[in-house]
């Protein structure tokens, strides 16, 4: 069996989808390809199935929130990003696909048809970051209780520090611990 020679992912994508506009970011030997969110499923399927690329394994889906307390998210195209980490077991290399999502409409298509393993990654991101995956069959929360409000991993969600107890605020804090002095 001969293995087709490895292709450069960005060049191959340019040749295969000439109408697609995308950016390429190289950092410390990692390649990120930033694609429009409408095209993510087509691009993912292309990278999975094309000989010479064969990114057959979905390692991880992560999400980032670029919100800053003062100054918004700068010159990035959107507040949120979803990063898909693909792995090609044949060529032993990794690739990151990235989509940016606007603040008022954080919706992206699900890649569930391409990799069934994306199921829980997407549910977790929906639960913790509030990014909706269109077409995902399971809309229940994964990590937080069902009646939880908000999406905790967003940068504008408070971490929820409990204040340190001193004698002046001891009564206030002990109110939350009704069983502590029994």
């Amino acid at each position: 069996m001969t293995i087709p020679t490895a292709l450069d992912p960005a060049a191959a994508l340019k040749a295969a989808m000439p109408e697609l506009t995308f950016d390429v970011d190289e950092f410390r030997g990692e390649t990120s390809i930033i694609v429009p969110r409408e095209q993510i499923v087509a691009v993912a399927r292309y990278f999975r199935d094309t000989p010479g690329l064969v990114y057959n394994f979905l390692s991880d889906i992560s999400s980032v929130d670029f919100y800053e307390q003062y100054g918004g998210y700068g010159d990035r195209p959107g507040r949120y990003a979803v990063a898909y980490h693909l792995l090609s077991m044949l060529y032993r290399r990794r690739l990151r696909l990235k989509v940016y999502l606007p603040e008022d409409d954080p919706v992206v298509d699900t890649v569930l048809p391409v990799w069934p393993g994306a199921n829980w990654f997407e549910r977790e991101i929906w639960d913790l970051m509030g990014i909706e995956f269109r077409g995902h069959p399971d809309r229940r929360r994964l990590m937080m209780p069902d009646d939880w409000e908000g999406h905790p991993l967003r940068r504008d969600y408070p971490l929820g520090y409990e204040t340190v107890m001193f004698s002046f605020n001891a009564d206030e804090i002990m109110k939350h611990k009704p069983f502590a002095d029994e």
């Binding site: 520090y161 409990e162 939350h176 611990k177 069983f179």
Partner: peptide
């Protein structure tokens, strides 16, 4: 007392729920 995790996800000491 919730130890190193002073955050949204954890009950800040189980004595909020049951007597210890």
């Amino acid at each position: 007392c919730s130890g190193v995790y002073n955050n949204y996800a954890l009950v800040q000491g189980v004595d909020e729920v049951i007597p210890v």
